[in-house]
Nucleic acid binder design. Structure first.
Lengths: 329, 329
DNA sequence: GTGAAAGCGCTAACAA
DNA sequence: TTGTTAGCGCTTTCAC
């Protein structure tokens, strides 16, 4: 295995030049005579030469790879972000994917090992746990946070317009005549949920509808619990006539709890497979994973190039996709 | 950025030993006095020393990373495999993820660059396009194929028991009294589809039901086309009373085409989110992504350790999850 | 325009 | 049990 690869010296010998000249051609440096370049290129092809990344990395002290670090790559949205990051880097970098899976120790260990030399930069969807050790990490490696910021740390961030997205959902329901709109979200301390709840509040406010906290439910998704709450909603004095959810896990929990997307006015935050047909079509606020990933990569490149650039926060717009559920009352 | 990292020599100096001794401790070699080891370990901690992977890689000519290469990491099943691969390698390797996205040139380029030194081995879900250049790749890098083999190449493979899985689905429908069972699958040339169709045929055969080719539909998923075919099914002389699908893309296309999983007896190959509630619950043949990924990693490690080991093929069992749809007729 | 020499941080081979 | 020497394959001086 691992057949004898040609090295730079082999190419040099075949082309009748020195190793340095081969290096120049490889790195597209100026000051190489055209015919010399041609000969070198030919020799490279002839030997199917490939530079050794470890040697380049050692010498240049860059790795040619970046990491995409998320909670769990098997979550659809994380996977979409990963794909977008991958496409966006093109062939400039290799992308290392790491899932933290809620294991703080593993998370820290992984990130530190990555930062120690495996990667030139990190696109990170931080977990609450990231907080502790991030400070040190940030000093040694460019990091851009994606989808949510790392609390207490000044990093470049690329986020969805959570407030605006949720506000547009609520506005849509209000326009359809609803004024009792329930908000079901993930745990209160989750960054995106704070913003989305804020979007909910602001849309109500701007329509002159008073916020009724009894219509706000915020807990880590659990279909049993959410089911109970849904039943409770139905028997309060003035039950909600419409619902919004704060993220796809909450939406799934609602559906599993028997929430009837066909006969309730509903807008879910986050699109998901089958949302377009389920219950006749579920309205969603769709995040633009493609744009999020691309912008994250762009921001990371900028940070890698210029350590001292001012910290940048970017918001990516969402789209309200009206399918069906909110036309009903 | 990239703060002055401590190197081995710094650790050595602080511990009052030579670099080689530090190296010994780092690599857990024998023949290091216990107290020497302690001192070295202390020095490492003190300087928060991390070995430089590029230097290690250059010297050992291994990279400490493997690649997971698939068509599209944003496909749920691919993402699950990726996660499983990631977990299974633990901290022995870093996992590089590459999506080919149907771009043959990119695929080849990526794989060759990976093989050139970025990775010690590759877990590959080959596309039909892989065929051409794989031969060369295989000579330079350990490769194990996952989910489907690379046609015409002798590599280790880890596959689901497609035949058995589909057969169990069909047997279930037969036991429920059906003898007109339609098979809707992806394009005929797709490896998994061949095997699943074979499972369909063998279950019919063993029940003494004659194969009716007019009940077999095989095309790249397209909900329009599949919808037309579904309508056609309903008006033939003896319409099917039950349906099986060959993969999740086909299932989704069927659902998008308006297939009514609630009132038709149906078993889908591949589980998917909401399959448990959609149309009252869809029966599925679930693949074991966790086991597939773990076995692939295991097989790859074996291959990395022993280039000359005989080629191995492993089958991972599927599970038939009965939820509801097939109890109806 | 091109080349020679040095060295990136680590480990293999050999001494001691 | 520990240290010395060399060199992995490339790029960075700096000389020509």
């Amino acid at each position: 295995m691992s057949a004898e690869r040609a090295k730079m010296e082999d190419v040099a010998r075949l082309a009748g030049v020195s190793a340095k000249t081969v290096s120049r051609v490889l790195n597209q440096e100026a000051y190489v005579a055209t015919d010399t370049r041609e000969r070198v290129l030919a020799a490279m092809r002839e030997l199917s030469y490939r530079p050794n990344p470890a040697a380049q990395g050692l010498r240049r002290s860059t790795s040619g790879s970046i990491a995409f670090v998320c909670e769990d790559i098997s979550e659809p949205f994380a996977a979409q972000l990963a794909l977008s990051v991958e496409r966006s880097v093109g062939d400039r970098y290799v992308v290392i994917v790491a899932s933290m899976l809620g294991d703080v120790k593993r998370e820290r260990e992984t990130l530190e090992s990555l930062a120690a030399g495996h990667v030139d930069g990190i696109v990170l969807s931080p977990t609450p746990a990231s907080k502790g050790y991030l400070a040190r990490l940030l000093r040694s490696t460019p990091v851009v946070c994606l989808d949510r910021p790392a609390r207490g740390h000044e990093t470049d961030v690329v986020l969805s317009d959570n407030v605006g997205g949720m506000a547009s959902a609520v506005r849509h329901l209000i326009a359809a005549g609803h004024d009792r709109i329930a908000y079901l979200g993930d745990a209160e301390e989750v960054f995106t949920q704070k913003e989305r709840l804020e979007g909910y509040r602001s849309a109500l406010r701007e329509a002159g509808i008073e916020l009724d906290l009894s219509l706000v439910y915020q807990h880590a998704p659990d279909s049993q619990r959410i089911g109970k709450h849904l039943s409770w909603f139905r028997q309060i004095r003035r039950p909600p006539t419409a619902y919004v959810s704060g993220n796809s896990l909450t939406t799934l929990a609602m559906i599993h709890a028997g929430f009837d997307a066909a006969s309730d006015a509903f807008v879910a935050f986050d699109d998901f497979p089958l949302a377009d047909v389920f219950g006749g079509g579920i309205n969603v606020v769709a995040q633009d994973a493609e744009a999020l990933g691309a912008e994250a990569v762009h921001t990371l490149m900028r940070r890698i190039d210029n350590d001292a650039a001012p910290v940048k926060a970017t918001r990516i717009g969402t789209r309200l996709l009206i399918r069906n559920s909110s036309s009903l009352r």
